[in-house]
Design a protein around this nucleic acid. Structure first.
Lengths: 108, 108
DNA sequence: TTCATGTGTAAGAAAATTATTACACGTGTA
DNA sequence: TACACGTGTAATAATTTTCTTACACATGAA
């Protein structure tokens, strides 16, 4: 028996995190070139560091990337990000299943 | 040889269309209860008809649902919607592949 | 000390999305 | 004719998301 179940809220947060061109590129970059720290990634992608910070936050909140603070040899604190391993199966059936656990505006 | 390739824009529009609780419920309803027309669906989901209309439009633009105007026996024009058959594989690798064809702000 | 590098975040502007309200139009029936 | 039901859409408001700018703080090297 397989359990591909995911909560509606969880699914929604991942979809929302992915529904942005910058964030798709961020994941693509981390997937293709491997882990990277914020400032360097901002330069490679071509967006400002505060903006990248915001997008990384959303991705991390959704569990799509993880971060690890490290000290470089020259003493700087670098925050390295890498993509999580995830696999979402998006089909009408999977959505119907997940939607069962979606809270409504007029809940209990 | 399999070709799961999807354009970045296409992927993005589907993700954006899915990243909303109402729209997940719409797909879930159409999947579980089958095709339905706008007014009836609005009543079942519990949102206004104009609002549902807006959400259905986004889903249809993304190709996730289709519509067909039909005449009921008592002469009314009913617009029936149903879910398309789709299956998205969302993984870091798939995203990296799709992101190759994502236009940038500073394109050609 | 000053500069270059890294980190984070707060405040406000700009843009996009979501939601409501009010119209307009059509058909069958009382 | 008036009502009930269906359709769509335009205009506005409300909310959320995105983006920029400016700050604050830390370390090593010149």
């Amino acid at each position: 028996m397989k359990d591909d179940t995911i909560s509606g809220e969880q699914l929604l947060s991942m979809l929302a995190a992915l529904a942005n061109p910058h964030r798709l590129r961020i994941i693509a970059a981390l997937q293709s070139q491997g882990r990277n720290y914020v400032s360097q990634l901002a330069r490679e992608i071509g967006i400002s560091r505060p903006l990248l910070h915001l997008h990384l936050q959303k991705l991390e909140d959704a569990g799509l990337v993880t971060s690890q603070l490290e000290l470089s040899s020259d003493g700087k604190a670098l925050n390295y990000f890498e993509v999580s391993r995830f696999a979402l199966e998006i089909t009408p059936v999977a959505i119907a299943e997940a939607a069962k656990s979606l809270s409504t505006h007029l809940d209990p």
